[in-house]
Design a protein around this nucleic acid. Structure first.
Lengths: 135, 135
DNA sequence: CGCTACTTGCGAACTACTTGCTTCTTGGAG
DNA sequence: CTCCAAGAAGCAAGTAGTTCGCAAGTAGCG
């Protein structure tokens, strides 16, 4: 598995727990640490919450996962491969929709041109009201 | 004061503490509940943190202040009058810059057209790297 | 196969925020 | 001007989410 490479290059190991955490993130799409832990417990009940937290942090350093703020305060994790969309969080119903990252391309360009600011659009959710709740 | 109106219309009161909280938010531009509390304590040392939290919530319901997520998890409050800009948070140095809301106009329009999503751009910070750190 | 450094599990500690309860205060009514 | 009900403040305990310390376990190089 290529993942092993990413880890070992930094002197890290691919432990069963770590593998499970990564797999859980990939399957869940986006999930809070708590949700990841729950998922992992399905196949490995003894895993500790702090292990999940540590592994998410580790995997993030290596670049295999990334976190996003969806608003409630807690971070939400993604597999790095999926980071091609941004999140539309509805303040009314709480749903989280996706949109391809290029709807923001123009916006990102504006910020780069006018402020020299290099934007990571997917890091924060976009807050508003979804189509269903607007009605 | 007009504020009194906004409050009383909803059966709420204008207490010294509430006034101070509002004033602190206005003076600070944007601040975490903790920072507001600290500011208020300068002139009213006995104020309780929970009072600040409750007042921020109350003032938000009335529409005099609004909160934004800047990322660390805690909310950040603004006076409603100042909500005409969005926040550029730098992941490297942690600085928070402002940008007029119209740089996002295009982006907002895209989301509205393609997804029927009504965006509140200022609610979440825009994450990235500021000009100074890009160098 | 053995060793060493990285990891895990677990409990306790922390931080940021919330809630319950009692006492005090605001502000409209009399 | 005084009274009173409802709202608000203060305090303290509670909760959620996350981190830390340390002893025991284990991946993986040699």
């Amino acid at each position: 598995m290529a993942d092993q490479h990413e880890l070992r290059d930094k002197g890290l190991r691919l432990t069963p727990q770590r593998e499970l955490v990564l797999q859980a993130v990939r399957e869940l799409g986006h999930a809070t640490p708590e949700e990841v832990a729950e998922k992992v417990r399905a196949t490995h009940p003894g895993i500790n919450l702090s292990t999940v937290y540590r592994n998410l942090e580790t995997l993030e350093n290596v670049g295999l996962v990334q976190h996003t703020h969806l608003g409630h305060g807690g971070a939400t994790y993604h597999a790095a491969e999926e980071l091609t969309h941004l999140h539309l969080v509805c303040g009314d119903c709480g749903s989280v929709g996706d949109a391809p990252i290029d709807v923001a391309a123009n916006f990102v360009q504006n910020l780069a041109d006018d402020y020299g600011f290099r934007t990571d659009v997917s890091h924060f959710a976009i807050y508003g009201t979804c189509a269903a709740c607007v009605k």
